[in-house]
């Protein structure tokens, strides 16, 4: 290989899709990003299933009741809980993202004086409050499911 060829072809070194999922010990928001993506795609998956099941209505009462009795299986109850949990996480985090991605609640830039901090880090209480609210709601929903 001559020099020109070598220059043209650096070795590819991208983290790829795995880099969306895990990239080392970063801040909470880094992994809320992953969660937002996973829950969003998960709800889409559920939506496909949901619309298919709903489509059974076209064929009348018999098939509808058969489909619904299928969902009485505890496996589906767990599935439904997971869907609602995914929705809740996605929704709460989504509302935070809507505000913060428009620059609200993040505060003004701050000259970098050591030790450095960044806006998300200074606003960590928002995430913690959101997490606490989410945990309480998840528990209440679980109680609703079991009772």
């Amino acid at each position: 290989m001559n020099v020109a060829e070598v220059k043209k072809k650096p070795l590819k070194n991208y983290l790829g899709i795995w880099g969306w999922v895990w990239a080392g010990r970063y801040n909470v928001e880094r992994y809320l990003y992953t969660l937002q993506r996973v829950t969003g795609l998960g709800i889409i998956l559920y939506g496909i299933l949901h619309l298919t099941a709903n489509g059974m209505r076209i064929s009348g009462e018999g098939l509808w009741e058969d489909t619904m009795s299928l969902f009485e299986n505890p496996v589906f109850a767990v599935g439904e809980y997971l869907v609602i949990a995914a929705f809740l996480i996605h929704a709460l985090n989504g509302l935070r993202l809507i505000l913060q991605q428009l620059g609200y609640t993040l505060g003004a830039p701050k000259p970098p004086i050591y030790p450095y901090s960044h806006a998300l880090q200074r606003r960590r209480p928002i995430v913690l409050a959101m997490g606490a609210l989410g945990a309480i709601l998840l528990l209440l929903i679980l109680i609703d499911f079991v009772v």
């Binding site: 801040n27 880094r30 428009l102 993040l106 830039p109 050591y114 998300l120």
Partner: peptide, 29 residues
């Protein structure tokens, strides 16, 4: 940009790119 904030966490100069990008989104909108 999905506000993962990893850039600001990693920045060795305390530049906080994540904050700048969210403010840029607001300016662009």
């Amino acid at each position: 940009c999905h506000l993962a904030g990893a850039c600001s966490e990693a920045c060795p100069k305390g530049v906080d790119p994540a904050l700048a990008i969210q403010l840029l989104k607001r300016t662009v909108l």
